[in-house]
């Protein structure tokens, strides 16, 4: 496992643990945690807080609930067992592999201009998540945010504001940050990126195409 240098924030891990993040963010968090044992341990510790809160109150169950549950268990036992999916060995960790329906080769890329390609993944509408493929050495359009943007590197690397982000690293950007990530030379950079508000581009051209691209 690569030594990951850029991690999730406590707020995101707590929100994921509490189950209150938009589905698009959940996918990025679950994908990062699949690659990062440090954040997996932090996440389990936030889950432990949930366990503590679970112990605090109780509500009476209906009469016969135990018997009904045992009956449910024996019905489930008769269902055919689904084979446990093998953990993918490609570029995409398990949760992302599930959403794409395969690895890199299964992605339905759309051109965005400047050699950049994207594929939007289907999630609930409160936020969006997409895969981006940025050619080696190319820049993402200069943009700022109204909300929060998470960018997780899956292949290659990008440079942003003097920092290098490689596979497994995550950049958490909020509304204060106007930035221009540049793909590192060497190989194309593939990222999974989620945002909960439309991006705002700082030059005119991308702003015009924005509605068509659903950025």
């Amino acid at each position: 496992m690569r030594d990951i240098r850029h991690h999730l924030t406590d707020e995101l891990l707590m929100g994921y643990s509490a189950g209150t993040l938009p589905e698009a963010f959940n996918l990025v968090v679950a994908t990062h945690v699949s690659l990062c044992d440090e954040c997996r341990a932090r996440l389990h510790s936030f889950d432990a807080v949930g366990g503590v809160l679970l112990e605090e109150e109780s509500a009476s169950m209906a009469h016969g609930a135990l018997e009904a549950t045992l009956a449910l268990i024996s019905r489930k036992a008769q269902e055919p067992i689904q084979p446990k999916p093998k953990q993918p060995a490609g570029a995409f960790p398990g949760p992302l592999y599930d959403y794409v329906g395969g690895d890199l080769g299964a992605v339905n890329w759309k051109r965005m201009g400047g050699g950049v390609r994207q594929a939007i993944l289907k999630t609930s509408k409160d936020a969006t998540v997409r895969l981006l493929n940025i050619p080696a050495g190319a820049a993402m359009p200069d943009h700022g945010h109204k909300g929060m943007e998470l960018t997780l590197v899956l292949q290659g690397a990008f440079l942003d504001d003097g920092e290098r982000f490689a596979r497994g690293d995550i950049e958490v950007a909020n509304e204060d940050l106007a930035h221009t990530p540049i793909a590192d030379i060497g190989e194309d950079c593939i990222c999974l990126t989620a945002s909960d508000a439309p991006l705002t581009f700082n030059s005119l051209a991308p702003r015009l195409v924005q509605p068509f691209l659903r950025i």
Binding site: T9, E11, S17, A18, T20, L21, F25, L53, M148
Partner: peptide
């Protein structure tokens, strides 16, 4: 409130 779904992710404090 965070764990019972009363806070959105932007309202959660570290």
């Amino acid at each position: 409130r965070a764990y019972f779904g009363d806070l959105s992710h932007s309202e959660i404090a570290a």
